[in-house]
């Protein structure tokens, strides 16, 4: 059974430990700007929302890639970017309607969540269990799917 990241905004305090864990895992330094998961703050409402790629079935990024740099990881179901193959054309960054593929100007490539190969660092780092790695059939995933469903069709 494939697992997914379940993000529960009502548990998030906005501490950014997930961003640090993600960037440390992927970049070797604590660097929230290069985290694949982002926490957004709704100041006026007093809310926080952790947000990253839902590894959607439509895989907009994968289909938009002109050089086949994005593939489905058979173990995790994640859409992985091959840094060797990516040329940095950024078409996936405008094609992904969730805005979860981002260009990293320092590497000249794009970056996105790859579920850390099946052991997501953000999950471990979250002090409030706002980010959990659960069976994709978990009931809590329903609302994320509902969100995906209201987005676009080609």
């Amino acid at each position: 059974m494939l697992r997914s990241l379940q993000l529960e905004s009502e548990k998030c305090t906005g501490c950014l430990q997930c961003e640090m864990a993600c960037s440390y895992e992927n970049e070797g330094v604590f660097n929230p700007s290069k985290s694949r998961i982002k926490v957004f703050t709704f100041h006026e409402e007093g809310r926080f929302a952790p947000y990253t790629c839902s590894q959607c079935a439509e895989a907009w990024c994968l289909h938009a890639c002109p050089v086949d740099a994005i593939t489905i990881n058979p173990g995790t179901g994640a859409k992985d970017v091959s840094e060797d193959v990516c040329v940095g054309c950024k078409v996936c960054t405008i094609a992904c309607p969730f805005g979860t593929v981002n260009y990293n100007a320092d590497s000249g490539k794009v970056i996105k969540c790859d579920l850390c190969g099946g052991d997501p660092a953000c999950v471990e780092a979250c002090p409030t269990e706002a980010i959990t790695y659960v069976d994709a059939s978990n009931a809590g995933m329903d609302r994320m799917r509902a969100h995906a469903a209201q987005t676009i069709k080609s």
Partner: peptide
Amino acid sequence: VTNAACFGCTIACGRIS
């Protein structure tokens, strides 16, 4: 409204009202 954390804080004592 909520408690809120500063950067990296796993306590999150901040008050949002």
